[in-house]
Simulated assay, not measured.
Amino acid sequence: MFTSAPQSLCILRLSAIGDVCNTIATVQAIQKQWPETQITWITGQLEAKLLDAVSGIEVIVFDKKAGIKGYRELWKKLKGRRFDALLHMQYAIRASIATLGIKAKYRIGFDKARSQDLQTLFTNIQVPSPKSLHVADGLMAFAKTIGVKDDTLSWSLTSSSKDRDWAIDKIQPQQRNLVLVPGASKAYKNWTATGYVEVIEHARQRGWNVILAGSPAQVEVDLANAIQSKLSEPCLSLVGQSSLMEMLALIDLADAVIAPDTGPTHMASAVQTPVIGLYAHHNPYRVGPYNYLDYVVSAYEDAILVETGKKSDQLDWRTRAKDPDAMQRIQSSSVINMFDKLVEDFYPQ
């Protein structure tokens, strides 16, 4: 599409943290080839905080909860501006409506295989879906479509000295540190307190320091409290006590992370901290931590086989296991064995 650097590009990816984190690799691939291109990224309020870790972009916050007022404020900020291309990287109808106030020659979106909610009606170029199932590869296909030659996924995220100092204060320098993010904002994605306790006690027996982390969402706070009440000795718990950028700095300094299907798994992958992701409702080969898919513990195949009688490769790539107790299929022994494998692979004695 572009044989030389475009003057300006607009990225539209509003949410969620994990998807925004995956999108960063695409944006940085564009920046690497065309450092002079002005990139404007429209995103949500929480997600914008993560973009503090990315240099060289203009961030415009869209308040998704403000209704028509939010659209009007966004369009007002963009009035009189025109981009060489809009990369419409979120197929939700809410995002597509936002594009009505974005002027661009090329309006690029997913093809029919990956789009939903009538997204193709809001675009004039569709990105061919890659063979890979992974969301991050589907996003990187946008960069390839506009002319980026090196589509290798890599991330460069930086933390401020203040955030890093906060994290350093929480890490035990004489031990390996495991950051365990037990909860996701959607309760059905969460594993059991008992399972986490068994993993924590095992990690401690191996000499690791364990830190609990997470957002202030009540479901996460309650799960962390349940874990603490069952432990022989409570962990340091930072659940609800860190900003998103402090969380990123903590994950960056940690030696390993364990988390379910939530943003911190992708943050860990981006900063190259080994992470064990726990999955049952979504295919981890589609939404798991990109650099550490070999360390996923998944009950997804079992869950969908019981529900549908079919394997994942016989189903639509977005198929979700609907059993609310699917995460309970994960055995603590499986997570412990994966932790031991991670330690052997990354921190051999």
Results as ranks from 00 to 15, higher is better:
L157C: 05
K131F: 01
K162C: 06
K144D: 15
V181N: 01
T158F: 12
N177V: 08
V135N: 05
A143I: 08
F142Y: 13
S154N: 15
L153T: 02
S185E: 15
L178D: 04
S156R: 00
G147D: 08
D137Q: 14
K186V: 11
N177T: 09
P130I: 12
S160C: 13
N177S: 00
A187T: 07
K144F: 03
L139C: 03
G147C: 04
I171N: 02
L157E: 07
K131H: 01
P182E: 02
D165N: 13
F142C: 01
N177G: 03
V127G: 03
D137L: 06
D150M: 10
I171P: 05
K186W: 09
A136C: 01
A141T: 14
R176C: 12
Q174N: 14
W166F: 15
L139F: 11
A136S: 10
A143C: 10
S185N: 02
A193Y: 05
T152H: 03
N190P: 12
S156M: 09
G147M: 10
L153N: 03
N190R: 06
L157T: 02
Q175Y: 04
S154G: 01
S132I: 05
A143R: 06
I168N: 10
I168G: 05
P130W: 14
I171Q: 10
D165W: 05
R176E: 03
M140L: 15
Q126S: 06
W166R: 11
T152D: 08
K186M: 08
I171A: 12
P128D: 06
T158G: 04
S154W: 06
D137V: 08
Y196M: 06
P173R: 09
K131W: 00
A184S: 15
T158W: 05
V148M: 04
Q172V: 12
L139G: 01
G195D: 13
V135M: 08
T192W: 01
D169A: 14
P128V: 09
G138T: 11
Y196W: 13
K149F: 05
F142A: 07
I171G: 07
F142P: 10
A193S: 14
S132L: 11
G138H: 05
Q172F: 06
W166T: 13
L133N: 14
D165P: 02
S160Y: 09
S132H: 08
A136G: 07
V127L: 10
A167C: 11
K144V: 07
A141H: 00
N190K: 07
D150F: 14
T158P: 07
K162N: 15
L157M: 12
K149A: 13
D151R: 10
I146K: 03
K131S: 15
D137K: 10
L180P: 01
L133K: 08
G195W: 14
K149Y: 00
L153H: 00
T192H: 11
W155G: 09
W191S: 04
Q175H: 03
A143F: 03
